[in-house]
Design a protein around this nucleic acid. Sequence first.
DNA 1: CGGTATCCCATTGGATACTG
DNA 2: CAGTATCCAATGGGATACCG
Lengths: 121, 121
Amino acid sequence: MLVLAELVDGVRRFRELHRLIPGISQRMLTLTLRRLQRDGLVSRTAYATIPPQVEYALTELGHTLTGPMRVLADWATEHGAAFAEARRRWDAADGKTESIEAHPHRWPAPKSPSATGSGSR
Amino acid sequence: MLVLAELVDGVRRFRELHRLIPGISQRMLTLTLRRLQRDGLVSRTAYATIPPQVEYALTELGHTLTGPMRVLADWATEHGAAFAEARRRWDAADGKTESIEAHPHRWPAPKSPSATGSGSR
DNA sequence: CGGTATCCCATTGGATACTG
DNA sequence: CAGTATCCAATGGGATACCG
């Protein structure tokens, strides 16, 4: 998906993508690009020069995804902090957030079961 | 993500989710729900009845994702067919789509590109 | 430059059995 | 009902070496 994001700006060469996406291995970049090609989202254009030159670009279908991707990016911008904070809190408490909805039952209830919920507050 | 989609409609019990999401194992459903809880997207409420009853629901943060999810679903509705068709075509040709024009020229003078992707349209 | 081929370890996830 | 625990096969993906 980061690959698609980089291609939104325009045509990119292999090396360029490799540099722009931090931490990705050459192998994974290749595999990712092949899959995106297969899905019809990205086009690959090879030039028969002696240092080979290959350009990747979004296809028309690929461009239809830029809208949805921006929506997702906007969500992350707006709620990403709350998201991370929830994780931090959960990890700190290790699932010890107490909130029990004990309901009556006619059968003998053994004890108080532990309930963990993130929404109750 | 399918789990979140099912929860948009309202509160669901464990069994319900297991039934509604085809092909998911009990193990994976549990792991997925725990992760969503951890991320603050889903709340879990346990009732102390003798057949245990557990309800899952979206938290407020979880509800903020319904918009983005609908956007993605709409994209799939609109372009999913083209997507699948691209795959079918690629698999049928198995990547031997038109050979590249071999002009072993010495230094960069890009001439006739050969698109192996879905670019030329 | 832009890949492919190979090795190899870590993670994922299904199947199954057991529990409160 | 709603899980947890364990085993194990398949897959993912990094590191490295080599090729046109």
